[in-house]
Amino acid sequence: MLRPKIPTMPTPVDVTAPPAVVQPTAVEPARQIMTSAAAPVVPTTRPTVQFTPGTVLALVGAGTAVVLVVGTVLVSMLLATAVTAASVAVCAVVVRSLLNGQRRQR
């Protein structure tokens, strides 16, 4: 009744040719091309990023805005969880009161 069906391999209808045999070949390394020496890189002494006072002020303002927005979202999610928990607790108290009232009437 609960025996699994074992799939059978279908027999080929056409006559197939045996698979082709691949002969390994030797790997030859690529020839190296001689190039002239590259120009030396001169290190710069100045910093790659320069902040102006306006840029620093904008970055501080943007960072503050991001922190305030993320904080507001997290606090609102915490408040939603607290309100949900309080409503579930009130529902549990009401259901418990109804069940106890039914037991007393019997």
Rank of each mutant, 00 (worst) to 15 (best):
L2G: 14
R3F: 10
P4M: 13
I6C: 06
T8V: 08
T11I: 15
V15C: 07
A17F: 04
P18C: 01
P18V: 05
A20C: 00
A20F: 04
V22C: 00
V22S: 01
T25Y: 06
T25D: 03
A26D: 13
E28C: 02
E28W: 00
E28A: 07
P29V: 01
P29C: 00
P29A: 01
R31L: 07
R31D: 15
Q32I: 14
I33Q: 11
A37W: 07
A38E: 06
V42I: 14
T45R: 13
T45M: 13
R46P: 11
P47K: 04
P47F: 03
Q50F: 11
F51W: 14
F51K: 06
T52I: 00
P53R: 01
G54M: 06
L57F: 07
A58H: 03
A58D: 13
V60T: 10
A65S: 07
V69A: 12
V70I: 15
G71R: 02
G71M: 05
T72Q: 12
V73S: 02
L74M: 10
L74S: 06
L74C: 04
V75Q: 05
S76W: 09
L79Q: 07
L79A: 08
T81V: 09
T84M: 08
T84E: 06
A85F: 08
S87A: 15
S87L: 15
V88R: 04
V90L: 02
V90Y: 00
V90G: 00
V90H: 00
C91Q: 13
C91Y: 05
V95R: 01
R96L: 10
S97I: 08
L99S: 13
N100A: 15
N100E: 12
N100T: 11
R103W: 08
R103V: 12
Q105D: 09
